[in-house]
Amino acid sequence: MIRQAYTTVSDAFELPRILRLGENLYAASFFLMKLLPAKFILDRARDHSLIGPGSTIIETTSGTFGLALAILCAEAGYKLIVVSDPAVDTPLKTRMEDLGTRVEIVREPAAVGGFQGARLERMKQLQSENPDHFWPSQYDNPHNPDAYAPLVEIVVECIGRFDFLVGTVGSGGSMCGTSNYARTIFPEIKAVGVDTFGSVLFGQPDQKRLLRGLGNSLMPKNLDHTIFDEVHWVSAQAAFTATRLLHRSYALFAGATSGAAFMVARWIAAQNPDKAVVCLLPDEGYRYIETVYSDEWLDQNGFSTRHMIESPTNVEHPFAARPEWARLDWNRRTLSEVLAVQEVTM
């Protein structure tokens, strides 16, 4: 088909590039994956007359969903307030503010739910001050997972059939949405979720986490555990190492969650040489230039990216998962089914 000039940046940048990284390993490499759900959510809200020019959008996020909203709101002329916490990085905050977003930082964590809880509280407050607002609610809005059909579209056009889908889980939107759409065509596809230690998503107790963008302190409605065949937990150390390897081996300059997904996908591709593996790389590396890509920062924070961890430790129960890398055969079970299995201490 004939290529056309794009009329908006969000249109131009919403789809990933599909890269073949190995014989049976493919990557869907995004500039900003969250453009897909942010756009789908705002478009549906506009279709239902929930928003129009000049509307106020209020969301809590310290990640890329905020940047995606900032881009779309700048394009459409919506006001945007983003409630964030001290973990929000300067590059992200700078870009959002330059796009006209009001970024509110909460300073103290809440007793339950940590900073995420505190952000929610502050957001509720702002929402009552702006009764006409719209809340995209990426964690619970079903339009988040429903936004991922165009990803499946480009993947099947480029490679046809595939067997494994590997991606990180934060809201669950990208993995649940992509798996569900892809399985309407290829029901056999195995979904592999990548989480981090100290995230409640797949049953670990909540803890402070060094690896951001994946994992969660609260359980989002958009996470449907029963789509997953395998779950992996990776540490910041392991993910950072893989992020740098991705860059050094392929010049693929991506964020830390991309590194985490790549690490797991690379291992799965090696274990299953006759199966096609697709991993999702959600964002670019610029945000991480001062951290993951800085040897000095890594050193100061006690990380070393010299040695890639080659394989995970298998566990039967989420409580048994220990750094740097653990794997559990989830087998499309619910979280309570998985937690009900007797923990075997090793």
Binding site: A149, E153, I154, V156, I159, R161, Y181
Partner: peptide, 25 residues
Amino acid sequence: VKEIKSFQMLRALMRRAIEDRSAAL
């Protein structure tokens, strides 16, 4: 809306099926 999205995916897969001359796809 979801069905329309699915049709779009199937159209993309059709391109691959023709390109690869794949009866399976």
